[in-house]
Structure formats: structure tokens, C-alpha cells
């Protein structure tokens, strides 16, 4: 049973909108898997179908080798879910929140596990504080602790780091790596491509479909192109010229241009020529491997 999650041709419509247009996916045990895509790509819908919160219109869904519809109770005891909003009871303390989530997952001997989780998320000093009085990062860690109280085998995270400061985000990722070491499978959705790069495998989603599915490195290699980074001024004018010159893909980051090219010297010479003709000052160039962001924008544009 290497595939802990199997999805086959999953579809879901919201009245007239097709949110998920038939996706197939296999996730292995112990993976840290990311569904990446812009808002409205169908990530949250997919994760909600996987947790059994909504039912798909068609397609097959199995978790831990079992069909989700027929084995809802069995599966729900083995999965943890962290929704976008860090759903906690603001008028209960950290301890009480964890206690409640333990009880509703049939865990009544929870105090040891709770101490362990609080230690792990470094929330022990705040355990008597009301959840409403916690910072965004602490709320997120508490929500994570609540979803881990029953030692789930699969953890579903829906945009877990949205609205959390960078330091807390790093902390959070450390905690996630710890979980992976313990053998938990993690499936997360994220709009941040830098987070996706840290996952073992990534599915890029757009408009209800998976447009790429592989390890981050393979996805980057797959398009067979490089990025020419040019630091120049005036950069805005340079961006316009390249954009209008034809079939080159270009992105502007401040005073830098990222131009996607076939990795050949004549291509670079050609671009340099255009810049010279238009009197654009170039203060540096280098070839970089494309980031997931470059690839993603390239794939969406095609």
C-alpha cells in the first residue's frame, strides 16, 4: 500500500461553475505533497473532497486503500485537517481547545500527547491563554496541534501559512519537517511557490486542472528553458520593448528583467542587440535556472 491517496478523474461543479474538471493523482506514504495554483484553481475544493467535507460529482477517491464514502468513520479517525481559517474556539484556552478536539476524535487519554504537542509547537508557556488573544502564528500552531491530537496518518493543510508572518512561517515548516520524519503524509495547498519548492512533489493546478505534476526539480527541467536575468535601466522601457518584440516571455521584478530563453548564445546576443539599439544601460546579466514561479507563469500563459 504505497499509495496512501488515490484520486481518479475527480470532478466537482458548483451550480454552473466547474471547480474541478477531472483530476487524477496518487500520493505516496510519507510524502509532503503540495497543490499549487492561483486563487480559484480548485485547490480548496479538492482538499475538501479528500477530507469528506463535500462529495464529488464523479470520480474515484480512496484514502488508505479504502473508499471514502463507505469508510467515512474509519478514515476520519486517521486524518487531520487544518482549514484556511485556523478554526479554533476563541473563547477557550489553548489547553481547552486541544482537549475538545481530542474528545471529539475519541481520545480521552490525551494529556501526555497534549504536552508533547505543546512542547513541539512551543506553546507550553501560553497554555492558559484564550485562543482569541494569540498572534496569527500561534493560532496557526495551535490549530495544527489540534489537528494532530489523534495522531493522524494523513494531514491535510489548506493554505496553512496564509496571513502568517515570515518568522512563524519558518517555524511552521520546521514543525512540518518533524512530522514527515515521524512518517506522516502531508497534503497541502499553497499559493506560495517558494513553499511548494520545499515539497517532495508538486501538482500545479490552474482552472480546475492539473497542468504539471512532478518533483519541483523535474518540473523546472521539463520546460527545457533557462532564464536570462538582466539588470538594466530604465527597466520599465526595456520590459515594454521585449514584450512587443514578439514571442519572448518576460517578467519584470523592480530593476531586473527575467527573460525566458532557449539556452543558446545567439538568443542572448539578439536580446543584447535590441537593448543597445534602444539605448538601455545594462549593468549585469546572468543565466539562472527557472524558479517554479517562472515555470508556472510560462505554463499558464501557454
Amino acid at each position: 500500500m504505497n499509495n496512501i491517496i488515490e484520486i481518479l478523474d475527480l470532478k466537482k461543479n458548483y451550480s454552473s461553475v466547474e471547480a474541478v474538471k477531472g483530476i487524477s493523482l496518487e500520493i505516496h506514504k510519507g510524502e509532503m505533497f503540495a497543490l499549487v495554483g492561483p486563487d480559484g484553481a480548485g485547490k480548496t475544493t479538492t482538499i475538501r473532497m479528500l477530507t469528506g467535507l463535500i462529495s464529488p460529482d464523479s470520480g474515484k477517491l480512496s484514502l488508505l486503500g479504502k473508499n471514502i464514502k463507505e469508510n467515512k468513520n474509519f478514515i476520519q479517525n486517521k486524518i487531520g485537517y487544518l482549514s484556511q481559517k485556523f478554526s479554533l474556539y476563541g473563547d477557550l484556552t489553548i489547553d481547552e481547545n486541544i482537549e475538545f478536539f481530542a474528545h471529539i476524535h475519541n481520545i480521552f487519554d490525551y494529556s501526555e500527547r497534549r504536552n508533547e504537542l505543546l512542547e513541539f509547537t512551543r506553546l507550553t508557556p501560553f497554555r492558559d491563554r484564550l485562543a482569541d488573544n494569540l498572534s496569527g502564528g500561534m493560532k496557526q500552531k495551535l490549530a495544527l496541534a489540534c489537528s494532530l491530537i489523534h495522531r493522524p496518518e494523513i494531514l491535510f493543510l489548506d493554505e496553512p501559512t496564509t496571513g502568517v508572518d515570515p518568522v512563524s512561517r519558518r517555524d511552521f515548516w520546521k514543525i512540518l519537517s518533524g512530522l514527515i520524519k515521524d512518517g506522516i503524509t502531508i497534503l497541502m495547498t499553497t499559493p506560495y511557490l517558494d513553499e511548494a519548492e520545499r515539497c517532495t512533489r508538486v501538482a500545479l493546478m490552474n482552472d480546475g486542472k492539473i497542468i504539471a505534476l512532478d518533483t519541483p526539480a523535474e518540473i523546472k527541467k521539463s520546460i527545457g528553458k533557462s532564464i536570462l536575468e538582466v539588470v538594466c535601466s530604465p527597466s520599465r522601457k526595456a520590459y515594454k520593448i521585449i514584450k512587443e518584440s514578439g514571442d519572448l516571455e518576460v517578467q519584470l521584478f523592480g530593476d531586473r528583467l527575467n527573460i525566458m530563453i532557449e539556452n543558446r548564445q545567439e538568443n542572448i546576443d539578439e536580446i543584447m542587440n535590441i537593448f543597445n539599439q534602444n539605448e538601455i544601460k545594462i549593468s549585469g546579466t546572468r543565466i539562472i535556472t527557472p524558479t517554479l514561479e517562472n515555470v508556472f507563469i510560462h505554463l499558464i500563459n501557454n
Binding site: 467535507l53 476520519q76 482549514s83 478554526s87 471529539i104 476524535h105
Partner: peptide, 13 residues
Amino acid sequence: ERGTIEQIKVSSV
């Protein structure tokens, strides 16, 4: 409103 209902729905309750 708080979304806690989803946490309850994914539990055994």
C-alpha cells in the same frame, strides 16, 4: 462562521 463546524465534521462526531 468561524469554520469550527468543519473541524467537527471531519471528526467522529
